[in-house]
Design a protein around this nucleic acid. Structure first.
Length: 869
RNA sequence: GCCGGUGUGGCGGAAUUGGUAGACGCAACAGACUUAAAAUCUGUUGGGAUUUUUUCCCGUGCCAGUUCAAGUCUGGCCACCGGUACCA
């Protein structure tokens, strides 16, 4: 490395140490609400090593935080670690270190060797580490509050089991039938007694309040809406027929969104796990049904759906009655009916439902049409009715199920109705007769929160010998994890090693009764569902946080991979804790920014993919920092693409930003003398400056204006901000090539000193180290750090609009919208004058020869367009 | 299948309200400096034709349309990416 170059490593580590010892980035909790700004980034899992992919989110959030500080806000910009979870436990099993040791080692490295080296501006005094007892004590406290409120409960249910995690997973943690942590591992369904949170109680509010989140990306809101999956339909009771009698339940209740097809029901499908199956199956079908259920339960989600459209099922021998028609309907079981959606029973209408149609084809069941497509009615005539359905509705009737709109047929008194209108009429009829009611269902399921693992927050409950669940008293919290654990045994047994610690799980209650602690621990998403509430009141020893001190995050930055998981859970927690009287707001994150991934070419895959260890395309932070510095990495990551798009890490591109830093560095060095003895940075009347000086002032102020606008939270144009800085530096070099240091006049010096001072402020959120170094060296003239006057305590510079006003503009001359010439003209000219000026133009005249002018359009300050043929 | 999103030079991308397409960077090429190289500074760089310091044509995935004017608006295709998927 050339010694003439900017010594990034030395300079950066110098300032990092100085900032670290100061309180320059600390947040004052007493700040009034209109002067504070909560800037947050999703806290990381301490896996031990951050790469450029991680760096992106911290950089974006840091620029926002620093800029807000300069705008006069007290910024709460905290950091912590989402520190419970499987990798620590797996590492412990492999090399017999305790998960706590492994985790704390990683945290120390990531905090001190990586996050701080990125030039971030966190208030570390508020650090939150979810695996420490002083944090999970409050996770347990919150769990008990939810439990008391009836929001936490235990039930036997079919749950997702990941054989690699050796534990159950929530629905949200299953992706395409695979474990979210083990992309190659299919999860299987098991019946298990597990703990759940009643997130479904909040389904409607979670859905409705998405409309309040006007500063969230539309895509994330759409994903949440789809996940919640509200559907409006009806429940209809189909009484069982005489041959089979089931005590207590004389009917099968189905849920349907298509009550309009009720006359087309030709069979009934129950999920294999439906509770009526055993009872209503006739003796001669018992064997077959038993075999089918066994077969269905042994299949993974993947196997069930991998067979594509081929439907399987088994007849129970039982029949029920369609309450609308009195028809006798055969009852089948099939695994395409899901036990945990709706009522677990489906009224099958093969004529108008794809899946039912396939099933009916497979087993030769009756297909009865009850809706006639408009296509048939219309005979292909386009002038059919005033409906907005046009050509698409005129497709000939498909040999498969007809799922589109149409007119009701074969349905007694409902014949002739539009099928949409028929829905409510039919439900209304059933409601009067007592066998139907309109219902709303959600796709969202309750959140499964218990995990059969050691390294998680213990559930603060115990079970007495006679099965009663009791809370651990608040004053006894935290229930700490036992530390004497033999992890070598854990591998063999699978599941939670807590079951191996009788000293821990056998307890005696205050009243002398014996009890056993719950050995499951909490899903780590519980820990991350409230961590952002802890930061504003991080040192509270009486409760998780004081209601009066917590406030919603103003700007949250994180990856889209949490669009549903963390972001939905955190919203739910906020609402639930509000109902526990612990909070007084409804939504945790006012503004959300989902940054794109950082990708790189992977030799292994032969394509450009997300950075990951397994793809072998990870670029670590420290090697690059050592050579080119964090500021260069920050600039590149911000510059290479818009925030929400992918960034491809290209080493040459990142080095290009180091080149930029050097250009800035050299520029200041070349003009060092202008900063001598300068108390007051300002220059005389702009109008009286030389043209070169005016141009440079204009260059800075247009950059200032553009960057100020780019940093608006509705825009987040970090990439263009960097381009604007570069443009100013290019302009400054142009100036330098015309005016070297020796040739400067007093006016030139005043202009340069003023502009360069503002330029440092301008780049300070982006390149905090470079800015602080330049600030100290050239502005403060201080060899000693002076953090009272640090560049990071300065105000954001204000651009002066009058500097940008010019009395001329580039007039574009067009013929029929095609550019012919561009000429510089005065802004004073009237429309008529502009027109006259345009017509006098040689190029235009030449092109107009032989043409007849039809019309002339004059847009002031823009163009003249001559329409001629 | 359904729901989102994206298509602009060799590459990443810019163009905020329809009004000069290609800002800024990377890569490449050339000049200056140097014994030389690196570094640096300065240029050139969408494609094509041409009478080659000139003039013209084409050009924002494809096809139509609206408009004096379309990367931008409308309709229809195509491709890619992401989410979701037997949710009755």
């Amino acid at each position: 490395m050339n010694v003439e170059h900017y010594q990034a490593k030395t300079i950066e580590s110098k300032w990092q140490e100085i900032w670290d010892k100061s309180d320059i980035y600390s947040f004052d909790s007493e700040t009034k609400s209109d002067k504070r700004f909560y800037s947050l980034v999703m806290f990381p899992y301490p896996s031990g090593n951050l790469h450029m992919g991680h760096m992106r989110v911290y950089t974006i959030s840091d620029v926002i935080s620093r800029h807000k500080r300069m705008l006069g806000y007290q910024v709460l910009n905290p950091m912590g670690f989402d520190a419970f979870g499987l990798p620590a436990e797996n590492a412990a099993i492999e090399n017999n270190t305790h998960p706590a040791v492994w985790t704390e080692t990683n945290i120390a490295y990531m905090r001190d060797q990586q996050l701080k080296r990125m030039g971030t501006s966190y208030d570390w005094s508020r650090e939150v580490v979810s695996c420490r007892a002083d944090y999970y004590k409050w996770t347990q406290f919150i769990f008990l509050k939810l439990y008391e409120k009836g929001l936490a409960y235990q039930k036997e249910a079919p749950v997702n089991w990941c054989p690699d995690c050796n534990t159950v997973l929530a629905n949200e943690q299953v992706e395409d039938g695979m474990c979210w942590r083990h992309g190659q591992t299919p999860v299987n369904k098991r019946m298990m007694k597990q703990w759940f949170l009643r997130i479904t109680d909040y389904a409607e509010e979670l859905l409705q309040d998405l409309n309040k989140l006007e500063h969230w990306p539309e895509s994330v809101k759409t994903m949440q809406r789809n996940w919640i999956g509200k559907s409006v339909g009806a429940e209809i009771d189909f009484p069982l027929c005489g041959a089979v009698r089931v005590e207590g339940s004389k009917a099968i209740t189905v849920y349907t969104t298509r009550p309009d097809t009720i006359y087309g029901v030709t069979y009934m499908v129950l999920a294999p796990e439906h509770k009526l199956v055993q009872e209503l199956t006739t003796d001669e079908n018992k064997e077959a049904i038993k075999a089918y259920i066994k077969d269905a339960s042994s299949k993974t989600e993947i196997e069930r759906t991998a067979e594509g459209q081929k439907k399987t099922g088994c007849f129970t021998g039982a029949y029920c009655t369609n309450p609308y028609t009195g028809e006798k309907i055969p009852v089948w079981i099939a695994d395409y009916a899901l036990v945990d959606y709706g009522t677990g029973a489906v009224m099958a209408v093969p004529a108008h439902d794809e899946r039912d149609w396939e099933f009916a084809q497979e087993f030769g069941l009756e297909i009865k049409e009850v809706i006639q497509s408009e296509a048939v009615v219309g005979e292909g005539s386009k002038a059919q009715g005033g409906e907005n359905e046009d050509d698409t509705a005129l497709q000939p009737y498909s040999p498969r199920a007809m799922t589109g709109p149409g007119v009701i047929i074969n349905s007694n008194e409902f014949n002739g109705l539009d099928n949409e209108a028929a829905k409510s009429k039919i439900v209304e009829h059933g409601l009067k007769s007592g066998f139907a009611r309109s219902t709303i269902k959600y796709r969202l399921r309750d959140w499964l929160i218990s995990r059969q693992r050691y390294w998680g927050c213990p559930i603060p409950l115990a079970q007495t010998e006679d099965g009663e669940l009791v809370q651990i008293p608040y004053e006894s919290l935290p229930v700490e994890l036992p530390t004497e654990i033999d992890f070598s045994a854990a591998k063999a047994m699978g599941g939670s090693v807590l079951e191996n610690s009788p000293d821990w799980f056998n307890i005696t209650l205050a009243n002398g009764r014996k009890a056993k602690r719950i050995t499951d621990t909490l899903d780590t998403f519980i820990c991350s569902s409230w961590y952002f509430m802890r930061y504003p009141d991080a040192l509270n020893t009486d409760k998780p946080f004081d209601k009066s001190k917590v406030f919603p995050v103003d700007q949250y930055v994180g990856g889209v991979e949490h669009a549903i998981l963390h972001l939905l859970y955190a919203r739910f927690f906020t609402k639930a804790l509000r109902d526990c009287d612990m909070l007084d707001f409804d939504e945790p994150f006012v503004r959300l920014l989902s940054q794109g991934m950082v990708v790189k070419y992977s030799e292994k895959d032969g394509k450009i993919t997300k950075m990951s260890k397994s793809k072998g395309n990870v670029v670590g932070t420290n090697d690059f920092f050592d050579e080119f510095g964090a500021d260069a990495a920050r600039l590149f990551i911000l510059f290479a693409a818009p925030v929400d798009a992918e960034v491809e890490w290209v080493e040459e591109g990142a080095q290009g930003q180091y080149r930029f830093i050097n250009r800035v560095w050299r520029l200041f060095k070349n003009y060092a003398s202008v900063f001598e003895n300068r108390e007051n940075y300002d220059f005389a009347d702009f109008a009286k400056l030389t043209k070169d000086n005016q141009d440079l002032v204009r260059a800075l102020h247009s950059a200032l204006k553009a960057i100020t606008e780019d940093l608006d939270p509705n825009r987040n144009g970090f990439n263009t901000s960097v381009a604007r800085m570069t443009e100013f530096v290019n302009a400054a070099y142009k100036y330098f090539n015309a005016h070297d240091q020796e040739s400067l006049t007093a006016e030139d010096s005043a202009v340069l000193a003023t502009l360069f001072r503002q330029f440092i402020l301008l780049i300070s959120p982006f390149t905090p180290h470079l800015a602080e170094e330049l600030w100290h060296k050239y502005i403060l003239h201080s060899d000693e750090p002076d953090l009272v006057n640090s560049v990071h305590r300065q105000s954001w510079p204000v651009f002066e609009p009058s500097y940008l006003e010019q009395n001329t503009f580039n007039l574009v001359l067009q013929i029929k919208g095609k550019k012919v010439d561009v000429v510089e003209v005065s802004k004073e000219l009237s429309k008529e004058q502009l027109e006259g000026f345009a017509l006098a133009n040689d190029k235009l005249q030449k092109r107009l020869q032989g043409l007849e002018i039809k019309k002339i359009i004059v847009i002031p300050n823009k163009l003249v367009n001559v329409v001629a043929v």
